[in-house]
């Protein structure tokens, strides 16, 4: 294993799901040969539509899902080695999930899970030390211990709870935060405060964030690099300004054009085509986007396109080969 500057390196990771009944099994490559790296103190966005495999990658990184093939390297050590010291791994890699109301146990007070985390990781010795410790992390996200003390999840708003779940993730002083759609359940007026929080934590704590989202506007606002996924493949990856202001892959262009822009003077032009059945697109030969692409040629339906580097952006499209 060679030493790299990447904090987390995903190398040709593949995940195969089998669907269908016993006799009619279909193998679906939910994630296919995906490679990318996250540098220390970087906010990396993984974007794409629902069912493109972006959450599967998060689950594989966190160890909730087994990868079928490929390698994941964290801090220059293979994930297989990290499995033996799982406790240390979770201490360094923490997660924030989509729905804060589901991440907290509705029958326990919100602060219970904070105490549980600090005791499980032996971060403090007793309750006397724990409270200021927890309070400090809560202050970093704009909350305080008194606000969550013996309050139940149902008593807090979605935005407060999501910030609390980020504070909980920060307790162990992680170097990587895997945030799976952290703002899609949060109200518009509070969404920016969560996204700003990621930017601030990166500045202050050198935290890297894998920001998984379908919201390209906040992705542009907060992240450094972005990878756009489509049906299990990364179709375009590069600096966020390059990819979103000057999209090269037809799918990225479609995605960009489909954002409901908050400007009533710039409305959508033309119309889009949607996939009828997701499974068909996964099983398609050649480029998986060919069925919906207006620029598709004969070879797109036959050959799977390879990655090409165009002006510092990786693009997986025949037009650039």
């Amino acid at each position: 294993m060679t030493a790299t500057e990447e904090l987390l390196q995903i190398e040709r990771v593949t995940k195969v799901f089998t669907v269908g009944s016993f006799f009619f099994k279909t193998r679906i490559n939910a994630v296919e040969n995906v490679s990318f790296g996250i540098k220390p103190a970087e906010i990396f966005t993984l974007a794409g539509e629902s069912g493109c495999g972006k959450s599967t990658i998060a689950k594989i990184i966190l160890g909730f899902e087994e990868k079928t093939a490929g390698e994941i390297v964290f801090e220059n050590e293979s994930i297989a080695h990290w499995r033996e010291k799982r406790q240390l791994f979770i201490q360094k890699v923490q997660a924030v999930f989509q729905n804060p109301f589901e991440s907290f146990n509705p029958l326990c007070a919100v602060d219970d899970i904070f105490f549980e985390t600090v005791y499980n990781f032996h971060l403090v010795q007793n309750e006397k030390e724990a409270i200021p410790f927890i309070d400090e992390r809560l202050k970093a996200v704009g909350l305080s211990f008194s606000e969550i003390h013996s309050r139940y999840p149902s008593e807090l708003s979605g935005g407060q709870l999501q910030r609390a779940s980020i504070a909980r993730a920060l307790l162990t002083n992680p170097s990587l935060l895997v945030a799976d759609e952290p703002v899609s359940m949060v109200d518009a007026s509070l969404r920016m405060s969560i996204v700003n929080l990621f930017a601030r934590l990166r500045e202050e704590m050198n935290l890297s964030v894998l920001y998984i989202t379908h919201d390209l506007a906040t992705a542009y606002y907060v992240s450094d690099r972005i990878a756009v996924m489509f049906r299990g493949n990364i179709v375009e990856m590069g600096p966020v300004e390059e990819v979103l202001l000057n999209p090269r892959h037809p799918y990225t262009q479609l995605l960009r054009d489909s954002i409901p822009e908050a400007n009533p003077h710039r409305k959508w032009k033309g119309s889009v085509r949607v996939a009828n059945v997701e499974e068909e697109e996964y099983l398609q030969k050649g480029c998986k986007f060919a069925g919906r692409c207006s620029l598709a040629e004969e070879r797109c339906r036959v050959d799977f396109p390879q990655e090409t580097l165009v002006d510092g952006v990786l693009v997986r499209c025949h037009r650039y080969n």
Partner: peptide, 23 residues
């Protein structure tokens, strides 16, 4: 006013604030 100011746009990186407090 807050709601519209806080909307992120692609191509714009200037810092935006959420509304303080909660509903």
């Amino acid at each position: 006013q807050y709601l519209i100011q806080a909307l992120p746009h692609i191509g714009e990186k200037k810092p935006k604030e959420g509304i303080p407090g909660s509903p």
